[in-house]
Design a protein around this nucleic acid. Structure first.
Lengths: 167, 167
DNA sequence: CAAATTACAGATAACATACTCTGAAAAATG
DNA sequence: CATTTTTCAGAGTATGTTATCTGTAATTTG
């Protein structure tokens, strides 16, 4: 797989949060249940995202995690970077350490343009866009056969209040 | 990494063989030494390729493995298929089982075109082309800092005799 | 202040991938 | 026919990823 499972979980959680009508603290428990991910494992994954400054967390009742920035200013590449690192975007197809223009592998030229396209795509896909899509009917996000609860409807109301609601 | 290490080794070995002036039986020992790969491990990897019909093998002194078809009719996708399987070319970015047009994930549209491009590229890159490139100066193939022995020179003589030399 | 709820932290287990080692089977050579 | 060279086959080891479990710290609520 291109992305590690940890990374996929992180992305799914982020999209789930972006799909909510407002940016509020959501319990990891809820995300894990909704996306059918192991709670404790997801906790660890999301800690990467808070440490990277993409999310903020709050303990205690009604606590949870929330996006640290507007959905329009967080993209797929940000999340991948924070969890898997940026290797996919820069690494040689064959993993050769010094592969580059000066010392290329036989696939360098083709692969480097491919990588650039991938990086571009991941940079372009913001949580705003992905969250919108997740809210559209017939768009799935969860891992299991358990369908996501009827996507919180008022998706049209784009998140105007971006910062997490103050406690 | 996009490709498993096994897969990379298989590809490297195949390119190495394609870079030789003629398609003859080469001892796995030699390939392993030249590419700085564990001999026993490479043996297992290459068995995948012989079982998939991409290579043929011959035991005993002066034995080894050889390409089963002309370098022009084996491509990167063939090798990846044989070792890692074709998941990378078909799988959802998030690994969601039923992801498709009918039941897409939020990234399906973008990712499926990306995948198609990747598949295209791997299909286009034949061993003939990759072997040629490997023979050009300043093109590397091996894993370690040990440089490949001066690429067997007569690269211009494209392999006209395609079947492995009969024993 | 006690109880409940949450994120945080660390240990441990299960599993897959990468790698090593030992021995067998096939083929050539003298 | 014995020896050498090679692929083939399988067991075993090491390491990293994924998943589980148990406990702690922070925060709210009554």
């Amino acid at each position: 797989m291109l992305l590690s499972k940890s990374c996929v979980y992180g992305v799914q959680a982020a999209i789930y949060m972006a799909s909510l009508p407002r940016n509020e603290y959501v319990a990891i428990q809820e995300i894990a249940r909704e996306l059918n991910i192991s709670f404790h494992f997801l906790t660890k994954v999301l800690q990467n995202l808070t440490q990277a400054g993409l999310m903020v967390s709050y303990r205690g009742p009604n606590g949870g995690i929330a996006l640290a920035r507007p959905t329009s200013s967080i993209n797929l590449a940000d999340i991948i970077d924070a969890i898997d690192g940026s290797d996919i975007f820069h690494e040689c197809l064959f993993g050769l350490p010094g592969c580059g223009i000066a010392d290329p592998c036989p696939a360098h030229e083709n692969w480097s343009t491919m990588r650039a396209r991938l990086h571009n795509l991941c940079h372009m896909l913001t949580l705003e866009e992905l969250g919108k899509r997740a809210n559209q009917l017939n768009v799935r996000l969860a891992n299991a056969s358990v369908p996501m609860k009827p996507a919180t409807l008022i998706a049209a109301i784009t998140n105007s209040s971006q910062a997490p609601i103050e406690k």
